[in-house]
């Protein structure tokens, strides 16, 4: 190995949960700049909860989340805005605003964060829509699009302000295997063509093997990370039966 990897997110002794229940206890991990990092686990293991703590929607019960060295929990005002601007988030449902056209949806972060001329915003939004290969008119409303198309449009919105980190919550949920493979290819391409870092929450094995450089596996019982590393390596070398089961379940 040459120089130590450039760390973009580091999580120290993080405890997350809800008023009545601790979901994950004192976990530690790091995400390297430019990689595709996947958060894995069965349903209810706390993937979404962890993600919401990472992006500052929830406040952790203890511990810290450093993004580019800044603490997301304590950041306030301009600092917090600048951090938020460096994120893109693709929500599980897409979360497109139904009363706005696709183009207006995609432009929204530019409206919020920049003072570009209208024409420039449209040009950027259209170029991102081209990038995600949305083949329908951007003047349409989200309700007129299929699930896969909505995901693509939501992805365009997530990357329109050139985020440094892109968070994806179960991007393939509710999509057919072909559409979700198409999305995976898109993520891979995005990751290859820019120095963006992807943090993906998923439990789809094909997706994991296709895109993830490194993964962590969460477990609900132990309330912690039970495995960390390259998914192929874990599949072939893990000794923990739980981990072996997760990675081989459908792979064979």
């Amino acid at each position: 190995m040459s120089a130590p990897p450039d760390i973009i997110i580091s999580v120290h002794n993080l405890t997350v949960g809800y008023a009545d229940q601790v979901v994950l206890q004192r976990i530690n991990f790091e995400v390297r700049r430019g990689e595709v990092f996947a958060i894995l686990g069965t349903s209810g293991s706390g993937k979404s909860t962890l993600l919401k703590n990472l992006i500052g929607l929830y406040t952790p019960m203890a511990g810290e989340v450093l993004i580019e060295g800044r603490d997301i929990v304590t950041a306030e005002g301009d600092d917090r805005l600048r951090l938020l601007r460096s994120f893109g988030v693709l929500y599980q449902s897409g979360a497109l605003f139904g009363s706005m056209t696709i183009l207006e949806n995609v432009r929204l972060p530019l409206d919020a964060f920049t003072r570009l001329p209208e024409l420039a915003k449209d040009l950027v939004a259209l170029s991102k829509l081209r990038l995600v290969d949305l083949k329908v008119s951007p003047a349409r409303l989200p309700a007129e699009l299929s699930g896969g198309m909505q995901k693509r449009a939501a992805l365009a919105r997530a990357i329109v302000a050139d985020p440094v980190i892109l968070f994806l919550d179960e991007p393939s949920a509710g999509l057919d295997p072909i559409t979700s493979a198409g999305l995976d290819a898109l993520f891979k391409e995005l990751s290859r063509n820019s120095d963006i870092t992807l943090v993906v929450v998923t439990h789809e094995l094909p997706s994991i093997y296709a895109i993830a450089d490194r993964v962590i596996l969460l477990d609900a019982e132990r309330k912690t990370i039970v495995a960390e590393g390259n998914p192929y390596y874990l599949r072939d070398h893990a000794t923990d039966p739980l981990v072996r089961h997760f990675f081989r379940r459908e792979a064979i």
């Binding site: 024409l119 449209d122 170029s127 008119s137 003047a139 063509n193």
Partner: peptide, 16 residues
């Protein structure tokens, strides 16, 4: 990345 821009897309949109 410059390749992904297109003024034609913009004009198409205006005409729509």
């Amino acid at each position: 990345e410059l390749q992904s821009f297109s003024i034609k897309d913009y004009q198409d949109l205006q005409s729509q």
